[in-house]
Design a binder for these strands. Structure first.
Lengths: 330, 330
DNA sequence: CTGAAAGCGCTAACAT
DNA sequence: ATGTTAGCGCTTTCAG
């Protein structure tokens, strides 16, 4: 099967390439007769325009690159799904890139994505080497992380969420609360969740204990770290884990050690991806508005691409989901 | 910031466009001096070649489209991650498309993917309208579903997996076993897991009870269906759920009804995605070799694109993961 | 209303 | 070892 060109259609329809192009793009003025002829010819040949050639001219690909740490993580999987859907509705297709916490891979990606292969970029990864696209005048939107002053950020209300979580534990009688969270290059200097945790604990005159793990820490090591948490704080009666995967891990470690949840120990996570809620329905958590975050990010990106004014930062509200890992308030 | 062309670099380096092109592609013979000059010029201008123009010439995009039901599902999220990684290593980028169980969306996608915007396609969705790409001479590989005689399939050993699951329950004393699975256009005529379940049950002279849900059944309705399962079969003592999300759902419904797991009721799921194992570590399941499935699919696609011979069907082995939802064998 | 011709930015013969 | 020239398939002035 040889490649069909505009010319082949033109020849069959007995018109010029220009006319066929006009019919395809519904541009200029055509007689109905010509339109019919051309469309018949296209159908007969099963002709599909060569998108690449079209793009060469318009210099647009209608492709949006999205960088995530890993779609295998339920939160980012769901985020990706909503991003993809929102972009699809605006006529864009999605070039996905799983950074897999590998800085090298992410950098290669960024450099490849330049040269106008994508019309825009949505970034949700941690370990960005900003220099790579420092000079790119590519519209970019970041999700939940500050990249550069001129890149708009869409995030959920991390401070309010962490406050909700911490207060939920305190209200239910916890005295010995530990906060676990993941450190990464984009939050080490300004972690809203940690700040809220510290502030709420201070308000209640409680000691604020914190355990951190690196963003690229492998699962086994992460478990070891949490085992140590229980070794060092056997009297812990409340845990606020900054993501649901860690919360679930802590929950099962605690049960294995004989803690009764929520009687001895209460646990609350963070994220609230749909799949997580279905898999671990008993887990209390802070639900981020994943769909809205995606929708806003796409809207912002579209505005940027259209050269419109965009807010620097967009914060969306979160929700507390109680569950059997928390006591019921009397 | 205006657009940089090969010509700008050539001018700065004091050579011709061709030479710059040769330097970029490391083709032909160049003097080291020229190479240095050109690379300095590129660096100074922060020049990135226009990928679209390159593609117009080669008629290849190095883009592979992948169609999945939803990356928000841990199994497909993980599959996507591995596919992406394997493709990236071969120099391809991934155009992702979440069918979201919407036939209409999937069809629009398929038609857009034609016109040589992607060099190949990996399909893991259920509701394909094959006619759409009937005429496309696009290399395609399917994952876990038969699409057409000339499209190679990569799948895990569904028959062996279901056999393992069913026998695990029987070995542990289950007498009243129910199999739940999802029906979709690609398995209604030949569901290996259901067949294995039927066969093993028959071998043991046990009644084979089956509950099905449609692939596009919303979560709430799915839960209702499972509630009915318990209403109609209160004496159920073993459940083999054909995916882990359903298994987890059944587990929590059962606990809510007062079943002790595994004393009264044993449950085993299917899929074994990493995230699921971390979130619900107690769940016994059949682990599909997701990474290998992805690797093979990519290898097959690469072979197809290279015009090489490829097997029609590739079956990969699965593993039983026991867990606290099964009794321990004495 | 339609066609001829000039590019879009790059690569690959074909010179030199 | 390097430059000149002719396209890749399409869109778009500019004529008619």
């Amino acid at each position: 099967m040889k490649k069909l060109k505009l010319e082949d259609v033109a020849a069959l329809a007995g018109v010029s390439k220009t006319t066929v192009s006009r019919v395809i793009n519904r541009r200029g003025s055509l007689s109905q007769k010509t339109i019919d002829k051309v469309e018949a010819a296209m159908a007969q040949l099963n002709y599909h325009p060569n998108v690449i050639a079209q793009q060469l001219h318009t210099q647009r690909t209608n492709l949006i690159g999205i960088l995530v740490p890993s779609v295998a993580n339920p939160f980012f999987g769901e985020l990706t799904m909503y991003l993809e859907d929102a972009l699809f509705q605006r006529g864009y297709k999605v070039l996905i890139s799983d950074a897999l916490n590998q800085t090298a891979k992410e950098e290669r990606y960024l450099s490849q994505l330049m040269g106008h292969q994508v019309d825009g970029l949505i970034i949700a990864t941690h370990n960005n080497k900003l220099e790579e696209y420092q000079h790119a005048n590519l519209p970019i939107v970041a999700i939940d992380r500050f990249l550069r002053a001129d890149i708009p950020v869409v995030a959920s209300d991390n401070y309010a969420g962490a406050k909700l979580a911490t207060e939920a534990l305190i209200q239910r009688g916890c005295q010995h609360i530990i906060h676990t969270y993941t450190t990464n290059p984009s939050n080490w200097h300004d972690n809203q969740r940690e700040k809220a945790f510290q502030a709420v604990m201070a308000d209640h005159h409680l000691p604020a204990i914190t355990y951190t793990t690196a963003f690229d820490c492998p699962p086994a090591e992460r478990t070891a770290r949490f085992e140590r948490l229980f070794d060092e704080h056997p009297a812990v009666d409340g845990i606020f884990a900054s993501n649901d995967l860690d919360a679930a891990r802590l929950l099962s470690l605690a049960r294995a050690r004989g803690y009764r949840v929520p009687a001895d120990l209460q646990i609350i996570g963070y994220d609230g991806a749909q799949a997580t809620q279905e898999l671990v329905p008993e887990l209390a958590t802070i639900i981020q508005p994943i769909e809205q975050m995606a929708t806003y990010a796409v809207k912002l990106l579209a505005d940027r691409m259209a050269g419109k004014f965009t807010p620097t930062s967009t914060v969306l509200p979160v929700n507390l989901k109680t569950g059997q890992t928390l006591k019921t308030l009397s």
